[in-house]
Design a protein around this nucleic acid. Structure first.
Lengths: 255, 255
DNA sequence: AGAAGGACCAGTGGTCCGTA
DNA sequence: AGAAGGACCAGTGGTCCGTA
């Protein structure tokens, strides 16, 4: 199976296939999982990589060559590959089984930062526009460099969790321990990360952009829409409460 | 004609039509030139504003209603309106005739800055993402606010001229006087603005982005691609020259 | 059910080129 | 000819939803 640890952090590998990969292949020039999986498939590795089972049809040009439906073949039918799902782990804990831990999640953010720095250095050398954030260009570069396990939806999904880890590691660690103990799933932990961040924003004048920008490792990430909205809503509530406790203005409901 | 001065800076109005407008209508909520021109046309002001003569067909839905070709009508045929072209003027000089001067050009950059500030304030109030540059959103807002004479291609075209004005007003003024005296056109003056900017960049370590960002009025503008390229090319040339004067390395041509 | 990520989409930065 | 700007286009930020 996939448990030859490649990195002290976690179980990596993929959820379907026992294909080993070098996770720290950044800059090594490709040759990652996807290529191996395709080669192992034993067919369909001619011409461009074929559309996978279930993938949406966007371009009808190379549809159905040979009249053979991929849905029916099962001998050479490789499944779509994905990273193992995250589970809530304590700091330092390695996830067991086909799971990834939260130290590994945060490690992905550090890897993205390294890819960004490489993209920035290349841009500067060439006299091109230099990105200050992790942009599509950086995700494309990461993929090209072999880090196929990094993708935009995933990284954006957990940005605020990483933010808490950066801004208040003690609080982040405590939250992880509490949620692990209670047996909560990753989604519940992820939701719970918002609240302490809003509290931090409250203490610092509600400017979540300024808070992100003041932290060197966090400044390269876009502030997630939902976090921004929560800070805004909470600021307004707090202002209304403060104001109504002094005087019930015309646009507040005193209680 | 259009010479009732609306603003001490320049002849404004439009190149085709004697329609007066309030240039400082920012925030007044529309009612600018275009509406007046359409109303003065005397027809075609029903339903949505009709496509103007020569305008490209993008949407075929409301094409040719009534089978009448606009090309043929000349009584009610209003021409497409444009701002007067710029001419090279000295500092303080108001352009005469159907022309606009360079103080007016630079004034447009200041107006854009004011529109940006308004957009930023609105974004902050609403807890939305706050632009730090003059973006499409700002141009859209300017248009909505009645400043129909502001548009993206124009502003982007002359950004580096405004940059020189910000960074070295004396040099900018001298260049304007020289080009006016020689009777050069705006295009020639615009081209000539690059060189002193590259010289400024040379003195400050070639980082044109840092130079823009260090100036509060300039920081809100994207560095123009061509200026960035010129700085990069010139830096490389300078480095090669310096290097070859010390030792002719393998990738330099000594001379 | 909970979760990973391909793919889509509205609106961006950039500027060309049909127009005046 | 010189110049203004509508309109286009490739690639963006953002995230949904078909998939595993």
């Amino acid at each position: 199976d996939t448990t030859n640890a490649l990195d002290a952090l976690s179980q990596e590998g993929l959820s379907e296939e026992p294909v080993q990969q070098e996770k720290e292949a950044a800059g090594s020039g490709g040759g990652g999982t996807w290529d191996l999986v395709v080669a192992a498939g034993g067919r369909n590795n001619n011409k461009k990589q074929r559309r996978r089972k279930g993938q949406k049809v966007v371009d009808h040009e190379d549809d159905m060559e040979g009249g053979e439906d991929e849905e029916n073949g099962d001998g050479g039918c490789y499944e779509r590959q994905r990273e193992h799902p995250f589970i809530v782990t304590e700091p330092g804990e390695v996830a067991r089984g086909k799971k990834n831990g939260l130290d590994y999640l945060f490690h992905l953010y550090e890897q993205c930062r390294e890819f960004l720095i490489q993209v920035q250095n290349m841009a500067k050398e060439r006299g091109e526009k230099c990105p200050s954030k992790v942009t599509n260009q950086v995700f494309r570069y990461a993929k090209k460099a072999g880090a196929s396990y990094i993708n935009k939806p995933k990284m954006r999904h957990y940005v605020h969790c990483y933010a808490l880890h950066c801004l208040d590691e003690a609080a982040s660690n405590a939250l992880r321990r509490a949620f692990k103990e209670r047996g909560e799933n990753v989604g519940a932990w992820r939701q719970a990360c918002y609240k302490p961040l809003v509290a931090i924003a409250a203490r610092q004048g509600w400017d979540i952009d300024a808070i992100f920008n003041a932290h060197p490792r966090l400044a390269i990430w876009y502030v997630p829409t939902k976090l921004r909205q929560l800070c805004h809503a909470e600021r307004n509530s707090a202002a209304a409460a403060t104001s109504s406790s002094v005087s019930a203005g015309p646009d507040h409901i005193a209680f």
